[in-house]
Design a protein around this nucleic acid. Structure first.
Lengths: 135, 135
DNA sequence: CTGTACCTTATAGTAAGCTTTAGGGTTTAT
DNA sequence: ATAAACCCTAAAGCTTACTATAAGGTACAG
């Protein structure tokens, strides 16, 4: 009683059965107890855990990093805020680098795109193609 | 005489043999002529073409999109500046969306990270873990 | 008791962009 | 002549995060 089968957990977390089994295979979800017939039986704890995973994903953590966060969480008393904050700050740096890189791309592409007439004439002198050709 | 073997083209473009053969398999490089023994023989044109590919990659175009750009370039007179500019603007929109998404991630993560003491005490009350746990 | 919805496993496929491996031939320098 | 450096192909492997397929067993409603 009170147990959730995989489909119910999937519905409650807006995921699906395959994804949950995949998370289990990657260690993000622990092997749950099973019914006599082998069905996975989850509790409310797993609902929270899946939400944790999804939230961390939205923060840009990879599944591997989420696995690390989860391990930290399991032994909260053994780990320090410093350890957790380090992970988060490292991720922040990564996100920042990606943003900077995308901004560089954007500026470069914007520049050559702005210079392009975009008209109906043939692309022989198209500034975009020429910019990509330039030495 | 004057022909480049694949290793030389790789050196000149700061790529490697495997990548060049891979580009060929994806249609980004045309099948070059071969020596009697079957070695690929390239000309200076291929150096420029590889540079075009690498430059477009740095602009954030995927190999598939680069293939499109190259086809446009082949028949420059048949294509219009408008076609090229459309591709570029579509890519600009995509880049913009990615930047916005990363900024959202960054703000959210920054907020919970700033709230974390980062100290040596146990992570039981760590604001980062708790934020990821929160409903 | 039968249909439908649900669950199980193992295996393969997807996307992108390569890299690696295995098992061979060729070119060049000494 | 032989070793080192170079080239060839086909096929598999890598990474991330799933998704799909096949071939089955289970739960429950009517």
């Amino acid at each position: 009683m009170g147990y959730l089968r995989i489909g119910e957990l999937a519905r409650l977390t807006d995921t699906n059965n395959e994804t949950l089994r995949f998370y289990e295979s990657r260690g993000l979800l622990e092997e749950p107890r099973r019914s006599d017939s082998g069905y996975r039986l989850y509790t409310q704890a797993e609902v929270l855990r899946v939400h944790f995973i999804l939230r961390a994903k939205r923060m840009g953590f990879s599944l591997k990093e989420i696995d690390e966060l989860l391990s930290l969480r399991v032994d909260k008393e053994l780990n320090t805020c410093g350890t957790v904050k380090e992970l988060a700050e490292h991720k922040l740096l990564e996100i920042d680098m990606k943003i900077k890189e995308l901004n560089r791309m954007k500026d470069a592409l914007q520049q050559i795109t702005d210079a392009c007439c975009g008209g109906e004439e043939s692309a022989i002198h198209c500034t975009i193609l020429n910019a990509l050709d330039a030495e």
